[in-house]
Simulated scan of single mutants.
Amino acid sequence: MNRYTKGVSRKRGLKPGSLVHIGTVTGKKTEIHIMDYKDDILKEKDTYNIEDCYKYKDTDNMTWINVNGLEDIALYQKLGEHFGIHSLIMEDILNTNQRPKIEEFEKYIFIVLKMIYFKDDKLVVEQISMICMQNLIITFQEASKAGDVFENLRTRIRNPKGKIRKTKVGYLTYALIDSIVDNYFVVLEKLEDKIEGFEESLMVNVSNNLFNEVYNLKRQMIYLWKAVWPLREIINTLQRGEVDIIEDKVSIYFKDVYDHTVQVIDTIELFRDMVAGLLDTYLSSASNKMNEIMKFLTIFSTIFIPLSFLVGVYGMNFDYMPELKFKYGYAILWMVMLSISGFMLMYFRKKKWL
């Protein structure tokens, strides 16, 4: 699980617009993937030099530049200066603790989203930042593109007969957001399988390990809700056609994404309630198990109370106690004790306490 705050204190005392990477440090070199296309023309390139992207600032083709890695501050300084991106926006791109949002400027819009996927059975929430300009989209992500959710979109772009090859920035913006939202359903399916597995386990097994897993799942649901809920505001802004860069004819596609987003949010809230129910079930099961143990110990102790009394009485060291010289006293005492124990067991069974 990612933390809710990841090194934000490092910005303390710095002036606004200072470029500081806040997030997980991987030590990997920043990779840049470029797709430049128009109708039947496609140029695809991988590079490590930001200078290779400069020529795509003013072009008639549609260009998607995907930057993987946020740790090279010098690279981001050059990128921001060349493409005219405000220093505060560049600061937000490097801060992976951002809330999903959309901001509109004169020549571009800035969008922050959360890409969610499972890696080695662990939930990963990765920040995706997008700069959408005229005929150009630059996306920024924390990890390598090998782990993102855009591979199907790249395949569609590589297809010369695909619709996306004939569209502009609005449709590519929609396609990127739609890829992220569609993958939410994949994550939700896996979470649902986990919840169902925990429900079955709680019926037969109550352990601290199971409690920890359910509690971690609850934290994941909270973090997932935090990452997805603001998406409604972003897509609602795009579907209303209030953003100049986005073509009006694309608004109907954003309405479809909005419906999917609402469905995802409703499902997350349902799962949150189910996980809360799992915790209640665990506590109830643990309480019932403890009650069974205490009931057994109480019955066991209750049976031995009169036996301990009898043994205590005849264990006193007086010289002139009755029955001490009686020949069958020992056997009679055992018969009395066994009779008392048997009677109490029969009584407990009749009351269904056993």
Rank of each mutant, 00 (worst) to 15 (best):
Y4I: 09
K11R: 07
R12F: 05
G23P: 01
V25T: 11
T26P: 03
T26Q: 05
T30L: 10
I32C: 12
H33F: 15
M35Q: 13
D39M: 07
D40Y: 14
L42V: 15
L42G: 14
E44F: 10
D52M: 13
C53V: 06
K55L: 10
Y56R: 02
D60T: 02
N61Y: 06
M62H: 07
T63I: 13
W64V: 12
I65W: 04
V67Q: 00
D72C: 09
Y76A: 03
Q77P: 06
L79H: 12
L79N: 09
L79V: 10
G84L: 11
G84Y: 07
G84N: 06
S87H: 02
L88P: 02
I89W: 00
R99M: 06
D120L: 06
D120T: 03
D121K: 08
V124P: 01
Q127Y: 05
I128H: 01
I131L: 08
L136Y: 00
I138F: 00
T139E: 01
F140M: 02
A146P: 00
F150T: 02
N152H: 11
R154H: 01
T155H: 02
R156E: 06
P160V: 11
K166G: 15
G170V: 12
G170R: 09
G170W: 11
L176T: 04
D182H: 07
D182Q: 08
L191S: 10
D193N: 12
I195T: 04
E196P: 10
E200T: 04
S201M: 14
V204H: 04
N208P: 06
F211V: 10
F211Y: 08
E213Y: 13
V214Y: 08
K218M: 14
I222V: 15
L224H: 03
W225V: 00
K226A: 14
K226L: 14
P230N: 09
R232T: 10
I235S: 02
N236C: 03
N236H: 11
T237E: 13
R240A: 12
V243Y: 00
V243T: 07
I246N: 06
S251R: 09
I252F: 12
F254E: 14
Y258M: 15
T261H: 04
T261M: 05
I268F: 08
L270P: 06
D273P: 01
A276D: 11
L278S: 04
Y282N: 05
A286C: 05
A286S: 04
S287L: 05
S287P: 01
K289P: 00
K289N: 09
M290N: 10
N291T: 01
N291Q: 01
I293W: 07
T298G: 11
I299L: 09
T302R: 10
I303M: 08
I305A: 02
I305P: 11
P306I: 05
P306G: 15
L307V: 13
L310D: 03
M316R: 07
M316Q: 07
M321F: 01
M321N: 09
P322V: 05
E323S: 02
K325L: 11
G329Q: 06
L333H: 02
L333K: 15
S339P: 09
I340H: 13
L345D: 09
Y347W: 12
F348W: 07
K351F: 00
L354C: 09
